[in-house]
Design a protein around this nucleic acid. Structure first.
Lengths: 130, 130
DNA sequence: TTGACATATTCCTATATAGGAATGTATTGT
DNA sequence: ACAATACATTCCTATATAGGAATATGTCAA
């Protein structure tokens, strides 16, 4: 009766901007927690918690190196998201051409897109602090 | 101090499986609410609420047709997700080849991927009832 | 063993749902 | 005007965070 757990699946896990930032950071190479903390400017407990979520859904893997824990992004786990979004690719291509036609002036003003359109935010995905 | 609103951005909005199902359903063509209710087997108020969220983040658009409201997916709004996931494509390609090498038996057992690996669910994204 | 270093976990709290039930609102046909 | 149709909104509640603070756990060096 509430929102699904962040650990439900990759979709829920990556809904949090800091977790996406962490995934970006760990994509190139494995890193210890401390470096994530320093580089992204987050609190250490916060990073540990986010990593736990990412680990539970398989978005990262870990191995111990002495007293440090080296995390790395498991890109494979992001694939389902990529594939889901991919099914819409052909549609935004079509919509683009339609918009283009309209820009070239093909009469009727779009009495479309209803009551309150309210497109909230822009493209501020990724990163963010704290 | 809690989870970000579902209306924060597309990432949060599509974290809910039923909303993804609705987006899939409305991708091909616009549809009245009633058809979504019947086709996906959800409660009408539930569908209206989900549509409101999708509308607020710009993932769908509406127009009135008599007493019906015709919704349609705005694929363009899914593009940021596609682009974010796309940045990981090259990585899962690399990882795949690494896994392949290992399968062909290149010695050392993967003392990798830490304490409790716990990859929870499989690929049951999309759809779902209620 | 002890202390320092690196992470993880626990506790507490404000907040935002998602579902169910009930009700409100807009629009059309007669 | 009125009933019926099609949606939207409100109310209520159990649940799952995310952040901050404090503390616990694990590992290495001397």
């Amino acid at each position: 009766m509430a929102r699904a757990a962040t650990t439900s699946d990759a979709f829920n896990a990556v809904a949090e901007p800091r977790r996406r930032a962490i995934l970006n950071y760990l994509a190139m190479q494995e890193r210890p927690v401390g470096e994530i903390v320093d580089s992204l400017g987050l609190e250490q407990p916060s990073v540990s918690k986010h990593l736990r979520v990412l680990l539970e859904v398989g978005l990262v893997s870990v191995r111990r190196d002495g007293r440090r824990m080296l995390y790395r992004t498991n890109a494979e786990a992001i694939r389902p998201l990529h594939e889901w979004t991919e099914t819409f690719e052909r549609f935004w291509r079509h919509q683009l051409s339609r918009v283009k036609e309209r820009a070239e002036g093909k009469s009727n003003p779009p009495k479309d897109s209803g009551p309150n359109f309210i497109p909230r935010r822009k493209n501020d995905f990724d990163s963010n602090k704290n």
